[in-house]
């Protein structure tokens, strides 16, 4: 065929793995950690305020080995998982239903756009009344934080399904269910996943922050407890755990996100 380029397309719309920027980013992070380590060791930063990163890592290692905070860790992560799953499922359902009811959507959408301006967190005490101190109230406030991101992403995803795909489904004489599963869902998936990514981040923030303010268990609670008892070793060890966990989860979700986005047309 005359117009076909001779070389096949590249194997994948690859995520650059070792670009100069990635390498440089690694160098910057290592340098920052190294600088903090030196600043602490030399005494420019008093150990009573910040511990050297090596001590944080050591502390984290020890508290993981000793199992002293295993219960807190399990509680926090299962709360995040529960809140994120609930937010994703409910958010998707609400978004999909709102999409079929344009008048309701028109009334709700301006509020959704302003939703994150409200410090939802101030309503945490209300959930404590409703559910008592514990996982119920924490999951509820985390869902409340995370769900709107998923609703918005669902609405956006359905909006962005190209009209021509709907026409194509009709030409193939698909029923509504087959069309939803084989056309609408895969077409909207990249946008839905953005919602999933945000929901996980917000669920994390909601859970850890609630544990921090008022709770009897969880990593957030353990950090606050350690802070109040001047136990900097435990405090920094757990902080490192959160930072690492968020970074890893983000990186994984981001990789999937990029793969999905690469499918969308340029």
């Amino acid at each position: 065929m005359a117009s076909a380029p001779a070389t096949p397309a590249p194997a994948a719309v690859a995520v650059p793995t070792a670009s100069p920027a990635t390498l440089l980013r690694l160098v910057v992070i290592v340098a920052a950690v190294g600088a903090l380590e030196i600043a602490c060791r030399v005494g420019w930063v008093p150990m009573t305020i910040v511990l050297p990163p090596s001590v944080m890592a050591e502390s984290l290692w020890q508290l993981l080995l000793s199992g002293s905070h295993t219960r807190d860790i399990v509680v926090s992560f299962s709360n995040v998982a529960a809140a994120a799953s609930l937010a994703v499922v409910l958010g998707f359902l609400i978004g999909a239903i709102l999409h079929t009811l344009p008048p309701v959507r028109g009334a709700v959408e301006p509020l959704l756009a302003s939703y994150y301006a409200v410090p939802t967190f101030m309503f945490y005490p209300v959930f404590i009344i409703l559910f008592g101190v514990g996982s119920g109230a924490i999951i509820a406030i985390a869902v409340l934080l995370a769900i709107v991101a998923m609703i918005t992403a669902t609405l956006n995803g359905i909006d962005r399904i190209p009209l021509v795909l709907g026409k194509t489904a009709r030409m193939m004489r698909m029923g509504p269910i087959e069309r939803a599963l084989k056309i609408s869902l895969p077409a909207a998936l990249p946008y839905l996943f953005t919602g999933v990514k945000l929901s996980v981040a917000y669920a994390f923030i909601g859970v850890i922050a609630s544990e921090f303010i008022l709770s009897g268990a969880g990593i957030g609670h353990a950090i606050a407890y350690a802070y109040n008892n001047f136990d900097n070793r435990t405090m920094y060890g757990l902080m490192l755990l959160i930072v690492l966990a968020v970074t890893v989860i983000n990186a994984v979700l981001d990789t999937i996100d990029r793969r999905l986005q690469a499918r969308l047309r340029r």
Partner: peptide, 21 residues
Amino acid sequence: QVAEPILVNLYSLPKVTLYPV
């Protein structure tokens, strides 16, 4: 390009964790 992923990561970090610092 170097800063963006770091900033995005910081954005999704529950910053309350760092409040004691």
